[in-house]
Design a protein around this nucleic acid. Structure first.
Lengths: 189, 189
DNA sequence: TACGGTGATTGCACAAGCTGAAATCACTTC
DNA sequence: GAAGTGATTTCAGCTTGTGCAATCACCGTA
């Protein structure tokens, strides 16, 4: 008989997503989440820095994978396309299979300003990490910042389409179209 | 003899900026800010929704002005240029004159993740407001989103340059160059 | 001058988020 | 089988943020 039930982190994440979806982020207390996961409030804060962070367990791995894909890319085209392709690969590997969980998670986040801010923070960190990876590939610093930001823009546009009800195309397929839309909108130089 | 010292909001903002710069955001309590402003903690929360908000008094007016400039613009060029020009006008009106205060404020924000998240939230709200303004001008919804996001990207690039020590050019002059850099980096369509 | 309404401020009580420190105890290692 | 490890718990405490009632100079009006 093990001393503790296994997978405490997973239990906390599942409990939190359920409760947030049921009754909203603000009306859910950390004590409540911990109780449903059969843990104490203190244990929650041992695993997550704050109440919001429980929804963002995925983002570290996602950033890691995207950065690796950008670093290892062997193409010589525009940096925007390098990053967009990297997004596509990682989306296939991590997101496409759990479309429903991702959508539920995003619905919870979109419904709460505090969570939205945290999401923006994660996106900004990802943008910076991508820009650094591009610089390591020899990209000019300023261009790396702009290319990473533009890629995030395309990613967000594609993601918005991807999460629309009834949408069946994969994120990987939607991404190049979003990048092309961005090029058209920004205009030729 | 007036019942209360005037300009409570300004006093709170000044006290907060000073204390955050002196000892950091996290090591400063709201009670401390209120005390320096000769008010109580309760009064602080009468004026600001939370501790971070005290640094963002400017953003509502800034958004309002940018949106108005975009709506009233009478040019027919690409939406990106419309927004960038609007940024330039508003920057001249609100930012250029207080370069030092803006820089100190941004240094405090950049030093703290929580404040950075709030800043990102304000930027996202501004992006959405600009996109809406563009749609009101007849822009396609998707293109409006991308153009607004691209304009924010250029704005951030220009702002980074503008706040570098020794930089003397105005934000208004830096903005078109940043937009051109973006066009070059993203590539022709 | 009197009088009632307005509104910025305050005090108080309290929920909830978050933290440091010390204790517990199954499991692992030597 | 002794000692160490580490996830968990308990507890006490601080800070953020809110609801509510009270204060009282100021303002308009009679």
């Amino acid at each position: 008989m093990p001393r503790w039930k296994p997978d405490a982190v997973d239990r906390l994440q599942d409990a939190a997503l359920e409760l947030f979806a049921e009754q909203g982020f603000e009306r859910t207390t950390v004590a409540e989440i911990a109780k449903r996961a059969e843990l104490t409030q203190r244990s929650f804060f041992n695993h997550f820095a704050d109440k919001r962070e429980v929804l963002f367990g995925m983002s570290a791995k996602l950033q890691e994978e995207v950065v690796r894909e950008v670093e290892e890319a062997d193409d010589a085209g525009p940096p925007l396309d390098t990053v967009v392709r990297a997004f596509g690969v990682v989306a296939d590997k991590l997101l496409e299979q759990r479309r429903d969980v991702v959508a539920r998670r995003y619905a919870v986040i979109a419904a709460n300003p505090e969570l939205l801010e945290r999401e923006l923070g994660k996106n900004a960190a990802l943008t910076d990490a991508i820009a650094d990876a591009l610089r390591r590939r020899g990209c000019e610093p300023g261009a790396a910042f702009l290319a990473a930001g533009a890629a995030m823009l395309a990613q967000q546009a594609a993601f918005r389409t991807w999460t629309r009800p009834g949408e069946t195309r994969t994120l990987r397929d939607l991404l190049p179209a979003a990048a092309e839309d961005l090029r058209t909108t920004v205009g030729a130089s």
